[in-house]
Simulated scan of single mutants.
Amino acid sequence: MFIKEELFAKNLFLVEPTEKYQRSFKNYTLAYKKINDNHYFTKYEKSLENFEKYSQDLLNYSKGKNLPLGLTNTSTFWLIDDDTVVGVLRIRHKEDEFAGHIGYDISPNYRNRGYGFMILNLALEKALSIGLNEIILTCNIDNIASKRIIEKNNGKLLETIFDEEENEYLYKYIIAIEDN
């Protein structure tokens, strides 16, 4: 199920947030500011103010420590290509009703190059390693790229749901992970 040959050919891998990639992650964050994407810029803005605290918070969240109210344990990884952070992956250890188990985003500077498929493929291996063997994912029904990425990774459509808080319809998928 995992497409390792393609990934290794591109020298891609996931790492937990680390100081080694601080400068690259700063550029990642600023790419969202440049395109006025407040959703993701706000999510990562704290890294610009105090990177050490930001990365420590993410590590704590993966262990269930100091979680913001209403959140579950969430492991965060960065997709690295040639020493550059090109994507961010979040794996929730329990399903979130509207966000599922996995969330990811690719830098605006690196979209439409296959990184979305690759980050989700690597995410499935990480999810399996933390004990998840059925993954729930959601995407906005208008997000054709995300729909394709999920389906290309063997996602099976379960249903369409409505998120009242975000006022949007979502496709809800399942991916059964096999230990390969």
Rank of each mutant, 00 (worst) to 15 (best):
G155R: 08
D82W: 00
L122C: 05
E52T: 13
E5S: 07
T76D: 06
D82K: 00
N27H: 07
E125D: 11
G87W: 02
Q22E: 13
L12I: 02
P17S: 08
L128Y: 14
L124W: 04
K20N: 10
N167Y: 14
I135F: 09
N27P: 04
K65S: 09
K152T: 15
Y21C: 08
Y171K: 07
V86Q: 00
F8V: 01
N140P: 08
E6A: 04
F51V: 07
Y44M: 10
L30C: 04
N140T: 12
L132G: 08
Y44F: 15
F2H: 00
S129A: 14
L59K: 15
D37T: 09
R23E: 14
A9S: 10
R111V: 13
F77V: 00
A145K: 10
S129N: 12
S129L: 06
I102N: 00
D179F: 04
N36D: 14
H93I: 00
L59T: 10
I149P: 05
K10P: 05
N154Q: 15
R90Y: 11
L79C: 03
E5P: 02
I102Y: 03
D163A: 14
I150G: 04
I141R: 09
I130N: 02
G114V: 10
D163M: 11
I91T: 01
I102V: 10
I80E: 04
F2D: 00
S62G: 13
N73S: 09
K33M: 12
K53F: 12
I136Y: 15
N11E: 10
K53W: 08
Q56D: 13
K26A: 13
M1Y: 02
L132D: 05
M118G: 03
A127W: 04
K43N: 14
G64T: 07
K34E: 15
Y21G: 04
F117E: 01
I161P: 07
L157P: 09
Y40M: 11
S107E: 06
N167K: 15
D57W: 09
N121T: 02
K147A: 15
L59V: 10
T74F: 03
E6Q: 00
M118F: 11
K34Q: 14
Y21K: 06
K156P: 05
I161K: 10
T18K: 12
V85A: 01
L48Q: 12
H101Y: 05
E166T: 07
I149Y: 07
G103Y: 01
Y171E: 08
F162Y: 15
F51H: 11
F117Q: 01
E164P: 12
I175S: 04
W78G: 01
K147N: 14
A9H: 03
H101I: 01
E6T: 00
Y61N: 07
Q56N: 14
N36V: 13
K4I: 01
L132W: 12
E19V: 00
F162L: 08
T74G: 02
K94A: 05
I119A: 05
I150T: 11
F51T: 06
L170M: 13
G100K: 01
R111D: 06
F98D: 00
D142R: 12
C139T: 15
F2N: 00
I177P: 00
N167S: 15
K43T: 15
T84V: 05
D163V: 09
D179G: 05
G114N: 02
T84K: 03
I150N: 06
I135Q: 07
Y115H: 09
